[in-house]
Design a protein around this nucleic acid. Structure first.
Lengths: 211, 211
DNA sequence: CTTGCAGTTCAAAACGTCTTGAACCATCAA
DNA sequence: TTGATGGTTCAAGACGTTTTGAACTGCAAG
């Protein structure tokens, strides 16, 4: 270690991690915005984007330094991303630290995470509305129209709350072309499945607790 | 007015507004949750839901009392909802206050509001990413793969940020049946346009500043 | 056993957003 | 003009969420 070793925790600025270049910062921040839009943390997006851009696995300490996050934040963000299977943990046999790499099967990631969230919402709202309907009937106070409208709100909830699910069900084919492109080489028709870029059929894997 | 007229602002509890029944509270709150999920304010949803349920126009003061909101909040929430054309202002000739009614052309509302927001996001992110790409080229620091990946992030942004737009484009037909039901009487084929329940074609109207 | 390092936890602080309420403005009628 | 009423504004405060950082755990090497 070089000069004054005062501050605790903060990794030495001269660590292995390359610092964030201007263009990287921009791209990383842009993805942060997209992710934030979907009610995840901006830094979830930033981490994934950096790993994706650099195309190599990085350690928690590197991420911390490069993205200027605290140790605690990195720990938690990484755990979540990993749970959602948006990044994956790898260990180089000769080195003893875990590193994390960006997964590229984006569509799977996104649908997995978002539709889980949507399902929670829709289920909850359906319950509330069913109860509302029950009470309304029981009390006899509700007009027939009001009852009808409660029922319609259920449909609204399903439609709006289930947007992603709907999208997936109906639009998968339309975006199939786009998707493949996120992973492998130049967009090309035909087979050629070099990387892990799949979309359909919700791979059989276990169903951890997201969110 | 009647007894002690001490508290400022707060409408008399004995105002014209009927208080919120338990079943109404439930339904209203459920819609609040759905709306909140989409990053609008819970109370946007509550107001719309109440107007929709009661099927009549209510004044700001009634809304304030029924939903237990402050004067200021109601003013602002109403203005936004009106801008988004989710509720509409009406004035009974004999009475001098404005009242607000829920619009029922759900699909139009949703697409109008959400796709506007999405467009903003996508535009912004595209700009950031294009700039990132430009810088990356200019600096010569970026690997070809990195450049390629920035370009792919653009596609990702369009896909993920434009979810609603995509959904509308691809799924409109699928939900068309559902939608009609939200507005008028029992779902019925054929003409009979009693209420304003349309879906397609983004009515020609002006383009105010949403959001 | 001790030391050093990677990683986790969690209470407190920072932060952003939403709501409040008092002051203010506009309109109308007397 | 005055008073009453409905509506708007905005600084301050409440609230919920994210981040921080210091203490802690676990592991491996010496």
């Amino acid at each position: 270690m070089s000069p004054s070793d005062d501050s605790p925790d903060r990794p030495e600025p001269s660590e292995s991690a390359e610092s964030l270049r201007a263009w990287e910062a921009l791209a990383v921040s842009a993805v942060g915005h997209v992710i934030e839009f979907w009610n995840f943390k901006r830094n979830h997006g930033r981490i994934w984007a950096l790993l994706y851009l650099r195309d190599r696995a990085m350690s928690a300490a590197e991420l911390q330094e490069t993205l200027e996050l605290s140790k605690g934040a990195v720990s938690m963000l990484i755990r979540e991303l990993e749970q959602w299977r948006v990044i994956e943990r790898v260990r180089d046999p000769r080195d003893s630290v875990w590193r994390y790499g960006a997964r590229t099967d984006l569509m799977k990631m996104i649908t997995r995470v978002l539709s889980r969230r949507e399902n929670d919402l829709v289920a909850r709202v359906q319950t509330e509305l069913r109860e509302a309907e029950r009470l309304a009937r029981a009390s006899g106070e509700a007009s027939p129209l009001a009852l009808e409208r409660i029922r319609r709100m259920r449909q609204l909830a399903e439609l709006v709350g289930g947007a992603i699910t709907t999208l997936i069900r109906t639009a998968t084919l339309d975006v199939r072309g786009l998707i493949g492109m996120l992973a492998g080489g130049v967009a090309r028709r035909g087979g050629d499945s070099h990387d892990d870029d799949t979309i359909g059929s919700e791979g059989g894997g276990g169903d951890e607790d997201l969110d």
